[in-house]
Write a protein that binds this DNA or RNA. Structure first.
Length: 304
DNA sequence: ACACGTGTTATGCG
DNA sequence: TCGCATAACACGTG
């Protein structure tokens, strides 16, 4: 399972990257951990005191809505995850933001196995690791209890926790999933043409618009544009049908690769997004700019 | 000390 | 009102 399996490529990438931002593949990995380890466990206690992470709910709102229920399914669209709850309870929405990680711990009452599932840890240090996601980094500085922004404690003694130093992750009841565009990994060819190939905004800005298509973050956008040999600044509406179909194909391939190999940072061009970096295909220098309000790197020759 | 990173949300402009 | 651009936010990191 992605998220708890040690993968050679993921390990190598992990040595190179200090912190990975959760995009679609990372959230899918976290969802699989929840689906595999956190369902059907009765919720005995909820710590929702972090009013920023749990906005706009008041302290106690999530607790009163969730205690006594079980998570019954884990869904995802783009970077938003949500869990159904038993007894016609509200959905529990989980968004990892820029730096959130989910940590699921096993029962302590002997009712389950001893495995610890770590969502968002692509490689980890093997079974039995108790660190949130980056044990080596965390071990350099102590894990502060307040970095756990939200906690479900199950009746079996285990927990599901949102660990987020940066505090941009978010927990809320009944998230408005319909405001998101179709999932980037699921969107059909026709819908992709309609939603992406329109308007005068730069193509990259369109790809990052979660209401147009859900799940693409800054790194994944650069990766798919590079794979497609398209300029991030190209007006979205000027793309031809064939270019749009190509783009969608590369998007699907990049997502598949990222899920399989442990995250967006395992992409082909992502490691070359730095000053002095070169295009891994043609060797030209990578160019840096701002597109859609984000730092963007592209091949100066192939994506002109 | 200070710029940087980044998903989301709010605000502003034509 | 719509489409797009930009700022603000949170705060640890280099």
């Amino acid at each position: 399972m992605v998220g708890v399996t040690v993968h050679r490529d993921a390990r190598r990438a992990r040595r190179c990257y200090v912190l990975g931002v959760p995009e679609l593949p990372e959230v899918e990995s976290a969802r699989l951990v929840v689906e595999g380890h956190a369902l059907d466990r009765t919720i005995a206690d909820v710590d929702d005191r972090d009013t920023y992470a749990c906005r706009p709910h008041a302290p106690g709102d999530l607790a009163s809505a969730l205690v006594g229920r079980r998570l019954t399914a884990a869904h995802r669209r783009g970077k938003t995850m949500w869990c159904d709850t038993s007894g016609e309870g509200p959905a529990l929405g989980l968004h990892l933001g820029m730096s959130g990680r989910l940590v699921v711990t096993p029962p302590t009452d002997g009712s389950g196995g001893g495995e610890v599932a770590v969502g968002g840890d692509y490689g980890g240090d093997g079974a039995g690791s108790w660190a949130p996601w980056n044990e080596r980094v965390v071990s350099r500085s102590p894990v502060k209890e307040e970095w756990y922004r939200f906690t479900l404690t199950f009746a079996d003694g285990g927990q599901l926790r949102l660990f987020d130093k940066r505090r941009l992750g978010r927990v809320r009841l009944d998230p408005d999933v319909e405001a998101l565009g179709p999932d980037a990994g699921e969107i059909g060819r026709e819908e992709f043409r309609e939603r992406i190939g329109r308007g005068t905004a730069p193509l990259k800005a369109r790809l990052l618009d979660q209401s147009a298509i859900a799940g693409i973050g800054n790194l994944l956008a650069d990766e798919v544009l590079w794979r497609s040999r398209l300029s991030p600044r190209h007006p979205a509406g000027e793309l031809g049908t064939e270019q749009l179909d190509d783009l969608r194909r590369e998007l699907r391939a990049a997502i598949r690769h990222a899920i399989r190999h442990g995250g967006v940072h395992t992409g082909e061009v992502v490691p070359h997004r730095h000053a002095g970096g070169h295009c891994p295909r043609c060797g030209a220098e990578m160019v840096r700019g701002t597109v859609g309000g984000r730092t963007t790197w592209w091949c100066g020759a192939e994506q002109a």
